[in-house]
């Protein structure tokens, strides 16, 4: 099975490029810092990666469906501010469902404009990025919010708690990843998302409700943001107005690193998980090596370029090609 896949796909190194690069990075960092490969460090990186990770799961599905979602960063700010602010006003048992519903409404706006009206997803979600940031500031009046009684609320379980010794955020992230992986690979919905992203015209000619499928992908993306907001709000017990700023690009980086094609139609949830972890460990490794945190931006960029290059090379069977 593996052998035939390698034969069909070109150079073996390119085919598993991301996995190999991941291992190389881990080895390098382990050699450079003796704190890197400790259980405490690994769990801590993992836990911090869950916010980007959960959002990246939803965005992977949007991208497989042939679209982009750049509004997730602002949406995260919105959802986190809302759930934290409402926590003290109406209690967590109401704050959570209200926030989830409001966030889903934002996803529905994306889904309506892109799925039903067929507007370009880049433009729509870029617009939503600023629009939602504005909405947050109007809602909060520019004030940051926080939860007064930080030790007495069960809301803390999502960000700070642990089950069987494993941090709750990690369980939520991996659980969601597993569910979405199963949906995308074994259920009719997943098949139809792949079809719509791979060839929207042929999908319509096959009787697939393209608009509805695209709409659904944006609802899923918004749902993931809402879950991430619960983890983030619970961990910080407060929120800045712009807490999610720039997340959309980190999320997209993880998705691309995981090998999901920006052209739509192909991609994998599990590989996105790998992309998320790789980004997180690179950032952590650089910090442990004493690099200022902004070096990670340069390194991340380089890693993405190499990953995309290897991916393309694997598809055409060699590293350079005069024709596409």
């Amino acid at each position: 099975m593996l052998l035939t896949r390698l034969k069909a796909g070109g150079p073996a190194i390119a085919k598993q490029g991301i996995l190999i690069a991941f291992i190389v990075f881990m080895i390098v960092f382990a050699l450079m810092s003796d704190r890197f490969l400790t259980t405490a460090n690994i769990m801590s990186v993992f836990r911090q990666a869950t916010i980007i990770g959960v959002i990246a799961l939803g965005v992977t599905i949007v991208v497989i469906g042939g679209n982009l979602d750049l509004s997730v960063g602002s949406m995260l700010s919105f959802a986190t501010v809302l759930v934290v602010d409402l926590h003290d006003k109406i209690g967590p048992e109401l704050a959570i469902p209200v926030m989830v519903a409001a966030t889903l409404c934002l996803g529905a706006i994306n889904g309506f404009l892109i799925g039903i009206l067929r507007l370009n997803s880049l433009i729509v979600t870029l617009g939503m990025l600023s629009a939602i940031q504005g909405l947050v500031l109007i809602y909060s009046g520019g004030q940051n919010v926080d939860i007064a009684d930080q030790s007495g609320t069960w809301f803390a379980i999502f960000g700070r708690g642990a089950i069987f010794g494993i941090a709750t955020p990690i369980i939520i992230f991996l659980g969601l990843a597993l569910i979405f992986h199963v949906i995308m690979t074994t259920m009719p919905f997943g098949r139809r998302v792949h079809a719509v992203g791979g060839n929207p015209t042929a999908s319509v000619f096959s009787g697939i409700p393209r608009s509805r499928i695209v709409f659904m992908t944006y609802l899923i993306s918004a749902l993931c943001v809402a879950v991430a907001a619960i983890i983030l709000g619970s961990r910080v017990m407060g929120s800045q107005n712009n807490v999610g700023q720039g997340y959309e690009l980190q999320v997209l980086a993880a998705v691309i690193l995981g090998g999901t094609s920006l052209l739509g139609g192909s991609g994998s949830i599990l590989r996105t998980v790998l992309g998320v972890l790789m980004l997180a460990f690179i950032q952590n490794g650089l910090i442990l090596m004493g690099q200022p945190y902004y070096t990670q931006w340069l390194v991340t960029w380089a890693v993405i370029i190499i990953a995309v290059w290897l991916d393309v090379a694997a598809k055409r069977g060699r590293l350079f090609s005069p024709i596409a």
Partner: peptide, 29 residues
């Protein structure tokens, strides 16, 4: 190529595409 097939999809999945939501065992294809 433009209207009939999702080219990167395999032969089986293309063939069952119009009925995939009915070809289920429980929630799974």
């Amino acid at each position: 190529k433009e209207q009939g097939l999702v080219l990167q999809m395999n032969c089986r999945d293309n063939m069952t595409l119009p009925q995939v939501q009915d070809l289920t065992a429980g929630p799974f294809v």
